[in-house]
């Protein structure tokens, strides 16, 4: 049935766009620092929760959103300053543990200051669903998809047309060489964390009217974002977006056609099979490693 299939697709794409934004954040940070940032989900949470806090403090929604995104970016930079930079030279596992520690701190502080409850705010352009061939779609889903697309386009322009963007890319390719040509890899580190935090927060803001938010939504979103990023081949922006949408759609299709109980396992099964056959993800570089 077409309308059923479409409904599953809409559901998947909406959720997938969230994963895509999380995966983009992962990718940005991974490129700049080779850190797998398990705190990425917390930036998404901060976007939603801080906006809620702003609105309940009486700020108009757009102001609250802007402040929340800015605050998340600041948190991102604080994370670099106090957790990533001091641990220079630590190996992959230590860095993973550090980011998990950071996520615990951010989540814990949010629970203490903003409570453990679940919150939401109204959708940007109403909640009257749109009907497409017998399936329904919320206007907010279009917001999520539209903004995700815009962000991808902007990032594409940023990385290919601006000097700063190119500096980040150069650092991703070869850190030492980048330093040698005078790029401050330190600045790149700060910039990429701030950018990725802001992106995450933006995602959190966009989905809150659909999915609601609470201090502990970051855990699952972070994990799924990581899956999506790896699926797309870590380090590839477009791959991250495709990966995110794929994970979302696969989950929705699994819930619709196979078993809703096992839909959460689907992305992980997918990624295992993919890695077994394509060890570097869908869009990963096919290069041989130097030793």
């Amino acid at each position: 049935m077409l309308s059923e299939f479409l409904q599953f697709l809409f559901s998947g794409v909406t959720v997938g766009a969230t994963y895509a934004l999380a995966a983009l954040g992962f990718t940005l940070i991974y490129n700049a620092s080779h850190v797998i940032n398990f705190a990425q989900g917390e930036f998404i949470m901060l976007g939603g929760m801080l906006t809620v806090a702003g609105v309940s403090a009486g700020l108009p929604l757009p102001v609250a959103i802007a402040l929340a995104i800015a605050a998340a970016a600041v948190v991102g930079m604080l994370v670099v300053r106090f957790a990533i930079q001091p641990a220079k030279g630590a190996d992959v596992v230590s860095l993973i543990i550090i980011t998990i520690g950071v996520s615990l701190v951010v989540r814990g502080l949010t629970q203490i200051s903003l409570g453990k409850g679940t919150h939401s705010f109204p959708a940007f352009s109403g909640s009257e669903p749109l009907h497409v061939l017998g399936a329904t779609l919320l206007p907010q889903s279009l917001w999520v998809l539209g903004v995700t697309a815009a962000v991808v386009a902007l990032l594409g322009w940023f990385f290919s047309r601006t000097l700063t963007g190119k500096a980040i890319l150069a650092t991703a390719y070869n850190r030492l060489a980048a330093q040698l040509v005078g790029i401050s890899t330190n600045k790149v580190l700060f910039l990429s964390f701030a950018l990725s935090a802001a992106l995450g927060a933006l995602g959190g803001v966009l989905v809150t009217p659909i999915t609601m938010t609470s201090a502990d939504v970051g855990i699952m979103l972070g994990l799924k974002g990581f899956v999506a990023a790896v699926l797309g081949g870590l380090g590839n922006g477009l791959g991250a977006v495709v990966g995110g949408l794929l994970v979302g759609v696969a989950e929705a299709m699994a819930a619709g056609y196979i078993s809703s109980a096992y839909k959460d396992a689907v992305p992980f099964v997918m990624i295992l099979f993919l890695l077994f056959f394509l060890p570097r993800g869908l869009f990963g570089a096919r290069v041989t490693e130097r030793v």
């Binding site: 230590s94 543990i97 550090i98 520690g101 701190v105 989540r107 629970q111 203490i112």
Partner: peptide
Amino acid sequence: GWETVAFGAILVFTMI
């Protein structure tokens, strides 16, 4: 209520 924060902070500091 500060358990999570303390646990996370200790992880970060130990690793650093």
